[in-house]
C-alpha cells in the first residue's frame, strides 16, 4: 500500500519478451520465458511465485548478474533511458549501485566479512560520486540514521558479524540507498529475518520509498507481504507471468487457477474458527528443460482441458491493465467457488 498508482508517468523500467535460458547437461532450461512488465517511478511492483518459477533469474537478468551459462534475450529492456541489452559491462557497472540498487536475501553473505560497514558503504559513494573520503563518511552516517540505526559513527567501525540479522539488513538497505537509486530490486529481503523484524524492515522500505521516491521491485514467495506492499504485481509460474494486475484486483478477484490455488493455501486468521484443512495444489512444478508446450500449470490444474496442452496460451486482458494467461474466459474463471478443489 505505497504511493498511488502513477499511471501517467512513463515507466522507469520496461521489460518486453524477456527470456533467460540456461544450458544444463540435459538441454536448454527456460528459466524465464518471454515475460513483459513495466514499473513506474515510485511504484512497488511485486513478483511472486514459488521456488523455481524464475523470479530470482528475472532479478539477476535486470541487474545483468546472470551466471555465465545463462543467455539473456528480450525484444525490449529499457531502464531509465538505457538499453540494458546493449550496455557495455563497464556502463552497466556504473549503473549498478548508483541508479539501480539491489537488496539480497541474506545480508550475511552479501556483505563482505573482512571490511567494516563504513568501508563498504563509503566505497559505493567514492566510486559513483567521485567524492572525498570525508564526504562519503558523512553520507554513510546520514544513511545509517535514515534506516534507524542508533550511534551510526560506532556502527561504521564495526564488521558485519558484529550486527544482528535485522541490523545487517538495515545496513544493506542504507548501502543500497547511498546514491539514491531510481529503482531498487529487493529479492526476498526479509526471508532470513524474524517475523517482527520482517514487519519493521518492510515498514522501513515503505518509509524510505516515500522519502526518496524510488521504485521497488519486490521479489518474494510470501503472499502476505505482496498483499500489504504491492501497487502492482505479477504471479510467476514455470518461467511465465500467469497473472498480473493491481494488488487489489489480483487478491480479490484472482482469475488464474494457480493464483486461486496459492491463495487457498494460506492459513487464514479471521477471528473465527480456523480452517480444518488447508487448500493445496497437488503435483509438482514441471521440468523447464526443453520445449514446453501449452500451459505449464496444466498437469496440476483442476480445470485442465484439451486446449491447455497445445500451443501458446494467449494472455487475456482485463480492465486496469490486469491480465492472466489461461484458456478459460473471465466469467467462468471467477465463477469458481473459493472452497472448491480442496481435497
Amino acid at each position: 500500500m505505497a504511493a498511488p498508482d502513477n499511471i501517467d508517468a512513463p515507466p522507469i523500467l520496461t521489460v518486453e519478451g524477456m527470456s533467460v535460458d540456461l544450458k544444463v547437461p540435459s538441454g536448454m532450461l527456460h528459466a524465464v520465458n518471454k515475460i513483459d512488465f513495466s514499473v513506474r517511478p515510485g511504484q512497488t511492483f511485486c513478483i511472486v511465485g514459488e521456488s523455481g518459477c524464475g523470479k530470482t533469474m528475472t532479478s539477476l537478468a535486470l541487474m545483468r548478474l546472470l551466471p555465465r551459462s545463462a543467455k539473456l534475450s528480450a525484444t525490449r529492456l529499457n531502464f531509465d533511458g538505457h538499453d540494458l541489452l546493449s550496455l557495455s559491462d563497464h556502463a552497466m557497472a556504473e549503473l549498478r549501485g548508483d541508479r539501480l540498487g539491489m537488496i539480497f536475501q541474506d545480508p550475511m553473505t552479501s556483505l563482505n566479512p573482512v571490511y567494516t560497514i563504513g568501508n563498504q558503504m563509503e566505497e559505493v559513494y567514492l566510486r559513483h560520486r567521485k567524492s572525498g573520503r570525508r564526504e562519503a563518511r558523512e553520507r554513510a552516517e546520514f544513511m545509517l540514521q535514515r534506516v534507524g540505526i542508533m550511534s551510526p559513527a560506532l556502527r561504521l567501525k564495526q564488521f558485519p558479524h558484529q550486527l544482528s540479522g535485522g541490523l545487517r539488513q538495515r545496513v544493506m538497505i542504507a548501502m543500497t540507498l547511498m546514491c539514491e537509486p531510481r529503482l531498487v530490486i529487493a529479492d526476498e529481503p526479509t526471508t532470513a529475518l524474524d517475523v517482527t523484524v520482517q514487519v519493521q524492515i518492510l515498514q522501513l522500505l515503505t518509509k524510505l520509498q516515500e522519502e526518496f521516491g524510488m521504485a521497488i521491485i519486490l521479489i518474494t514467495h510470501n503472499l502476505g507481504i505482496v498483499a500489504r506492499m504491492a501497487d502492482r504485481l505479477a504471479v510467476m509460474y514455470a518461467g511465465k507471468i500467469v497473472e498480473t494486475g493491481s494488488a487489489l484486483d489480483v487478491f480479490t478477484q484472482p482469475h488464474h487457477p494457480y493464483t486461486q490455488g496459492l491463495l487457498r493455501c494460506m492459513p487464514t486468521h479471521d477471528h473465527g474458527a480456523p480452517a480444518t484443512r488447508l487448500g493445496s495444489i497437488p503435483g509438482i512444478v514441471p521440468s523447464l528443460v526443453g520445449d514446453i508446450r501449452g500451459c505449464g500449470f496444466a498437469n496440476r490444474c483442476d480445470y485442465v482441458r484439451d486446449a491447455c496442452r497445445t500451443g501458446d496460451i494467449a494472455l487475456r486482458e482485463l480492465p486496469d491493465g490486469a491480465a492472466y494467461r489461461c484458456v478459460i474466459p473471465p466469467d467462468e474463471a471467477l465463477a469458481r467457488p473459493a472452497e472448491l478443489a480442496t481435497p
Binding site: 500500500m1 534507524g148 544482528s164 535485522g166 541490523l167 517475523v195 517482527t196 520482517q198 514487519v199 519493521q200 518492510l202 515498514q203 515503505t206 510470501n222 503472499l223 502476505g224 507481504i225 505482496v226 498483499a227 500489504r228 506492499m229 504491492a230 494488488a247 487489489l248 489480483v250 487478491f251 480479490t252 491463495l263 494460506m266 487464514t268 486468521h269 479471521d270
Partner: peptide, 25 residues
Amino acid sequence: EALLGSVLTPDPKLGLPDLHLGRGF
C-alpha cells in the same frame, strides 16, 4: 501480541501493521 500482529494475511486492503516495538535487541 506483537507476534500475532506480524502475521501478514493476504489482504490488499490492509497496510503493514504498526507493532510499536522498540528496536533494541
